[in-house]
């Protein structure tokens, strides 16, 4: 995030390579959107792999999706969408230079994000307990209506599904942690409230990243949890 070197005056002066603040703000937003383009394609390759494998192993993937906990995931999705709202309200409060509101909404966003990760952790733990986590060679026991219990090939393809499930949700969780880190920094800046215009600009950019995490989760939720048998 380009830090500006202005003095105490209200509107801070642009950085040396920019001519005016409008150019710097536009560059910041464009830079963030191009970065989100790369993140979108990062997840895009995961969704492409899901599409291919879903087409090849339709029946087993649909059945394996049934083993995921839909209610927990639905609650999680609602939480993340709400954190999108609180983030937007934080941005609006910063735009209106309301210090206490900005801090309040930022804390709400972080709380919702942390809750999401907690629920996600619990979900992973329950999958671990049901021996549905094939990570690091852990026992993988998959019961399927499609075949006699403990059948190797259906279990193999189901293992493939869970591999992709853990890769997608794991990558999303990493992005959530990075997002929470950014929000923590913004919260600290908001508390000090030294240069409100800079906080407004940087909060808009952080908000873009947080909303992007919502968009990715919407598609992960749809692909892995909803496409059931």
């Amino acid at each position: 995030m380009p830090t500006s070197n202005s003095g105490r005056s209200g509107e801070s002066r642009p950085e040396v390579q920019f001519d005016d603040m409008e150019q710097q703000r536009h560059a910041g937003l464009l830079g963030m959107w191009v970065f989100l383009l790369t993140e979108l394609l990062l997840f895009g390759a995961i969704f492409a792999s899901f599409a291919i494998l879903r087409v090849r192993h339709g029946a087993v993937f649909a059945e394996a999706a049934g083993h995921l906990d839909l209610s927990l995931a639905a609650v999680n999705t609602a939480l993340l969408l709400s954190s999108g709202l609180t983030m937007a309200l934080a941005e609006l409060s910063a735009g209106a230079r309301l210090r206490r509101a900005t801090i309040g909404w930022l804390q709400a966003t972080m709380a919702l994000g942390a809750l999401f990760l907690a629920i996600k952790g619990f979900e992973w733990y329950s999958e671990f307990r049901h021996q549905l986590m094939p990570v690091l060679g852990l026992p993988f026991h998959y019961s399927s209506a499609l075949a006699a219990p403990g059948e190797q090939p259906v279990a193999a393809v189901a293992e493939l599904f869970f591999n992709l499930y853990f890769i997608a949700t794991g990558l999303h969780a990493v992005h959530m942690l990075v997002g929470l880190g950014i929000l923590a920094v913004m919260l600290a800046l908001a508390r000090r409230w030294r240069r409100p215009d800079r906080i407004d600009r940087q909060l808009r950019i952080a908000g873009l990243y947080w909303a992007f995490i919502d968009v990715v989760w919407i598609f992960i939720f749809t692909c892995f949890y909803l496409l059931r048998a």
Binding site: L81, A88, V215, F219, T222
Partner: peptide, 14 residues
């Protein structure tokens, strides 16, 4: 629904 939700988030929140 997923596409509509994504579009809403991108148009309004972003």
């Amino acid at each position: 629904c997923a596409a509509a939700m994504a579009a809403l988030v991108m148009l309004v929140f972003m």
